[in-house]
């Protein structure tokens, strides 16, 4: 038995396909969109359509972009000799928010995961090797996540890139800002000790 008019049922059905949205939330969102001024709902629809039709992967770094190449790869003020390798486009956003990195990025679109059947061939590694061919890149910073998949990816890339004469580094692992030493696990603590720095 259908409780909704067909377009409403269709809207709820489409919204419930989004991650983390169950049928109740989808219903709430659908009724919200029907209740707000029409322009708000149309703006949302137009934004989704525009993002889907204009956003693509940058052919240089693999990040999401609406221009070719992306605004980071085009930026003349950025260092071209340092490349930061990340797993996902959202990691570029996280790194950019830190305002500490002024080089270029390369997005792998995943991480090596033996149990999920993700190997090096499924990642954008061939594109990375092509970028290194020019010899302009002197350092590659591996900013993969500090978990099993990120570690596996970092070990694989390090073995692949080091013989090319490029300096390969990995972002430091340690205690997050605001954390308690008491609750840190032994791997985090040992990594924090390895990466200790002299007081300035």
């Amino acid at each position: 038995m259908n409780y909704y008019a067909k377009p409403v049922a269709h809207l709820i059905d489409q919204l419930s396909k989004l991650p983390g949205i169950g049928p109740k939330t989808a219903q709430r969102l659908a009724f919200y969109l029907l209740g707000v001024p029409a322009e708000v709902a149309y703006n949302l629809a137009r934004s989704i359509e525009k993002a889907r039709s204009t956003i693509q992967y940058c052919t240089v770094c693999g990040n999401f972009t609406d221009e070719e190449p992306c605004f980071i790869c085009r930026d003349e003020r950025r260092r071209r000799d340092v490349l930061c390798v990340v797993e996902r486009p959202r990691d570029v956003v996280a790194m950019e928010k830190s305002r500490s990195f002024k080089g270029l990025y390369h997005v792998l679109h995943g991480a090596i995961s033996p149990m999920e059947g993700v190997g090096p061939d499924q990642l954008h590694i061939r594109e990375l090797l092509r970028r290194l061919e020019g010899g302009e890149v002197k350092e590659m910073i591996l900013a993969t996540n500090p978990n099993i998949e990120g570690d596996a990816t970092a070990i694989y890339l390090s073995g692949l890139i080091k013989p090319l004469g490029v300096r390969v580094t990995r972002i430091a692992h340690g205690l997050p800002v605001g954390a308690d030493l008491e609750y840190a696990d032994e791997i985090t603590l040992s990594k924090a000790l390895e990466g200790r720095q002299e007081m300035k």
Partner: peptide
């Protein structure tokens, strides 16, 4: 924590295999 596993790609592969 078996931290030695995380430092070797083959060991990550073998440990993943045992777990899977």
């Amino acid at each position: 924590m078996f931290s030695f596993i995380r430092e070797d790609l083959k060991k990550i592969g073998y440990a993943s295999y045992l777990a899977e």
